[in-house]
Amino acid sequence: MTTRTFRITVRGSFVRLTDEQRAALLAAAPEHDLLRAGFTPEGHLTYEITARDSYTFRFLESGDAEEDIVDATARAELAAEAWLSERGYAFKHFRTHAQDMTLAPLSKRQRQAAAATNTD
């Protein structure tokens, strides 16, 4: 049985940020910069609060079967909601996208590497 890797992206918008909340987000912005984005089990948050009040969480989950992606997506949404709620951030418009990486198409470079491995 193959373990499946799931990448889950949870997007949304902050609502009615107070001056204190905005200041806290701006102070923490370097660790939440898009250039540092990655998929992690605990979820990685990115935002650009000076441009817009939206955010993105990126989660890395795994499962044994294709249908495990449903539970993994629910856990990611709950984790994002918990992070926001624990800090007192109001939010809206959760949009979630989940991808089973075992079903993702290979890039040109990956296809070439696989072909080279198969001819050796």
Rank of each mutant, 00 (worst) to 15 (best):
K92R: 10
F14V: 04
D19H: 09
R22Y: 08
R11P: 02
G43R: 00
R52P: 00
Y89V: 02
I8R: 00
R4F: 08
Y55K: 08
L78G: 08
D71S: 10
A65S: 12
H32I: 01
D19E: 08
T40G: 07
F39P: 00
D120T: 12
E66K: 15
F57C: 04
L25P: 00
Y47S: 08
Q21H: 09
L34A: 14
G38W: 06
V70C: 13
A27S: 11
G63L: 00
E86L: 14
T40N: 09
R58P: 08
V70K: 15
D33I: 02
S54D: 15
R7H: 14
Q110N: 11
A80I: 01
E81N: 12
A72D: 05
A51H: 09
D19C: 09
L78D: 14
M1V: 11
R58C: 09
T3R: 14
T50F: 14
S62A: 07
E48M: 05
I49Y: 09
Q21M: 10
Q110H: 08
R4M: 08
D68I: 03
T9C: 13
A76M: 04
E61A: 11
G38D: 15
F14Q: 04
T18L: 04
S107C: 06
L26E: 13
L26I: 05
L78I: 12
E77N: 13
G63R: 01
E66N: 15
R87Q: 11
A113G: 11
Y89C: 03
G88W: 10
E66C: 13
Y47N: 02
T50K: 10
A28I: 02
E48V: 02
Q112S: 14
H32T: 07
L78R: 07
R11L: 09
A80R: 00
N118D: 14
F57M: 12
T2Q: 14
L106F: 14
L60K: 02
A114N: 12
